[in-house]
């Protein structure tokens, strides 16, 4: 992928989800806020797929999820924001994304119509493939979709996005204790689904 910026040229593994990636994204953000448009493109490149997959878990429609993702990025760039630590950058992005998704669901609860374009299984697979490099993670993700929302979102953030329990607590507005409880139950639940489908980790 072409990269014009100097600071934003570190091609980290997009699925690593580690602190390096966060710092990289934050540096891109700073670049963008200083006027370098390519900074935004890099942030979008790094985060749009995982965020899209995450949000699609709520709204179940990729084009709507894309809209929400755009809006989440917009919130990020409208004002210069200071983040205490790079990890908060991603936490913020996912919090905003989740809030927007819930907001959307509230509105659409009024609107019973089915979206014009239904996602085909192939679309979902494509998205999974782009967002999750690891074959095993993709299998787990399919199983994840069979879980209820509470479990799904907590596992998604923990397993796929490498969020710490504390970060998850921030995104989901829960206490750390609640997140730990949830994670424990979610893992039990996931395990039984995976066992049923014959997937071992």
């Amino acid at each position: 992928m072409p990269n014009s910026s100097n600071k934003c040229n570190d091609q980290s593994d997009l699925n690593a989800g580690g602190n390096d990636l966060n710092e990289y994204a934050l540096s891109c953000y700073m670049r963008y806020m200083e006027g370098d448009e390519s900074g935004l493109e890099e942030i979008v490149r790094v985060f749009s797929r995982p965020l899209l997959l995450f949000i699609n878990g709520y709204v179940n429609n990729i084009s709507i999820a894309e809209d929400i993702v755009s809006e989440a990025f917009l919130r990020l760039i409208i004002k210069r924001r200071r983040f205490k630590g790079a990890a908060l950058f991603k936490t913020y992005l996912f919090s905003v994304g989740r809030n927007l998704a819930i907001d959307y669901l509230r509105r659409s609860a009024k609107n019973k119509t089915v979206p014009l374009v239904e996602d085909s299984p192939a679309d979902i697979e494509e998205l999974e493939a782009q967002a999750l490099a690891d074959e095993q993670k993709r299998k787990v993700h399919s199983a994840l979709l069979k879980l209820n929302e509470l479990y799904r979102e907590v596992l998604y953030l923990s397993f796929f996005e490498g969020f710490t329990n504390e970060q998850i607590a921030k995104v989901l507005n829960k206490s750390k204790k609640q997140v730990e409880n949830l994670l424990y139950r979610a893992k039990q639940s996931l395990k039984s689904i995976l066992e049923r489908e014959g997937i071992t980790l």
Binding site: E37, L40, E41, V44, R45, S48, R49, I62, E66, D67, V69, S70, E71, F73, L74, I77, I78, D123, E126, L127
Partner: peptide
């Protein structure tokens, strides 16, 4: 599905509209 460039363009369009 939009690629990241298209999403970036969408974000910038939103920004213009917001301003």
């Amino acid at each position: 599905m939009k690629d990241y460039k298209e999403i970036t363009a969408a974000v910038l369009a939103r920004k213009a509209e917001y301003m």
